[in-house]
Simulated assay, not measured.
Amino acid sequence: MRLVSTNSIEAGTILAQTIYNENGVVLIKKGMSLTERTLGRLLNQGITYIYIEDKSTTDIHAESVIPDKLRMEATETIKETFIEIKNGGLDSRSYILNKKEKRLTDVVRRIMEEIQDSEKSISLLTDIFINDNYVFQHSLNVTIYALAIGVELNLSTKELTEVGLGAMLHDIGKIFIDPEILQKPDNLTDEEYEIIKGHTQIGYDFLRKHLDIPTVISHCAYQHHERLDGSGYPRGLKGEDIHIYAKLIGIADVFDAVTSNRVYRDAMLPHEGMEVLYAGAVRLFDKDMIEAFKRSIAVYPVGLTVELSDGREGVVLRQNQALCDRPVIRILKEKGCRIEAPYEADLSTVLNVTVTACFTA
């Protein structure tokens, strides 16, 4: 299989990875020929990249760290919790969250165990689910990324559980924001931007009232947009005044935001998302946390076509554990010409060769 941009695909291309909706129902099964109508639907649903069948990469398979069943259960749990809280009256909202807290925590622990037990690098490009509400999917993705960072930093089980729950609920304040503003495709007015920024205060005020939830969880919602140099919001906190969980979730939040399709912009690839984080290292984000994140995710996902610094081209075959920016490449071209006998180039052993470009067309 090969990873390509959805808008570059021609009708008749064969899908190599099944696409589901948020409830786990198969929308498009792998092996199906994609039509113009289907491709248009995928683009409208925000599916920027998909895996297709390709003769030179038939034996390459991208595998998910989080099992599909768990991912779908997690998404449904987040969705049910957020919708019930949003629709509940003021008197019932606290009861709803208290009722759901054990289920949310259980999901967090199961995701944590999958990450701890897996030797694979995390790539959510392999998990193609169409979800009508960005907040639900984003909350899960941030949870997965935040836990990956926490595992790499050797946080305790208690700390990881708190990080995961804090990440899962970090954007809960957005359910009380007008969806027309949240999903507005045009530039926000200053007033609208201030309304959206208010989700941190709203989330904090809601969560801190719940005695069954650790106080630090409410600070994850409150502080995940704070930045080390004081340029964040809502309080302009600096450095050590920002809770470690909020620093960690802030990194996961930004990465998922830029690597997910939004109504106002297409998704970046993981290596581009990492560049965004590194651009803010030290000034905005904790550099050690970024380094931990880099060690845990697939910077260049399996199936991605890349160009190397020595001019060779190929497709990412597999990842190298803890060296996720130096994968194993199946070389298909040399000096611009396709070669008859493709071979492997392990970038973890050839340190003078780097990835210089990625292609998704």
Results as ranks from 00 to 15, higher is better:
E194R: 13
L153R: 13
A167N: 05
S156L: 01
F176L: 01
G164P: 12
H170A: 03
Q183Y: 13
D190S: 15
Y193T: 14
N187L: 10
N154R: 09
Q183K: 15
I181F: 05
L155F: 09
D171W: 04
N154K: 12
L165K: 08
E191T: 14
M168S: 12
A167E: 10
T157Q: 04
S156H: 05
L160K: 01
L155N: 00
K184P: 01
L153E: 07
K158L: 08
D171E: 12
E194S: 13
Q183A: 02
D186F: 13
A167C: 11
A167T: 08
V163A: 09
M168K: 11
P185S: 07
E162Y: 11
E152N: 13
D178Y: 09
L160N: 04
K174D: 06
P185N: 14
N187S: 13
T157D: 02
L165I: 14
H170Q: 08
I181P: 05
I177N: 08
Q183E: 14
E192C: 09
D171H: 10
K158C: 00
L165P: 07
L169W: 05
A167Y: 04
I172C: 09
I177G: 00
E159D: 06
P185Y: 09
K158D: 03
I177V: 12
G164E: 00
I175V: 15
H170V: 04
E180C: 14
T157W: 01
F176G: 01
E194C: 07
K158Q: 09
E152F: 05
K184Y: 10
L165D: 00
L155G: 07
T161V: 05
E180T: 15
T157M: 06
S156E: 00
D190C: 04
P179Q: 12
D171C: 07
Y193Q: 13
N154A: 10
L155S: 00
Q183S: 13
M168Y: 05
L155T: 01
I181V: 13
K158A: 09
E159H: 03
N187V: 02
F176C: 01
Y193P: 02
Q183C: 08
L153V: 03
D178V: 10
L155K: 12
I175T: 15
I172L: 03
D190G: 06
P179W: 09
S156I: 07
I175M: 02
E194D: 02
T157P: 00
Y193L: 12
I172W: 00
L160Q: 04
F176H: 05
L169I: 02
I175G: 04
F176W: 15
E191H: 15
L153H: 00
K184I: 02
V163T: 10
T157I: 11
G164V: 07
N154W: 04
K184H: 11
P185E: 07
P185M: 11
A167Q: 07
K174L: 06
I177S: 02
V163C: 00
G164H: 10
P185W: 07
E194G: 07
H170C: 01
K174Q: 10
D178F: 13
N154Y: 09
E159Y: 09
G164F: 01
N154M: 04
I177Q: 07
L188K: 11
T189F: 08
I181T: 14
T189C: 04
D186M: 15
T161H: 04
P185F: 12
V163L: 06
E162V: 08
G173D: 06
H170T: 05
K158W: 07
L182R: 15
D186E: 15
T189W: 08
S156T: 15
E180D: 15
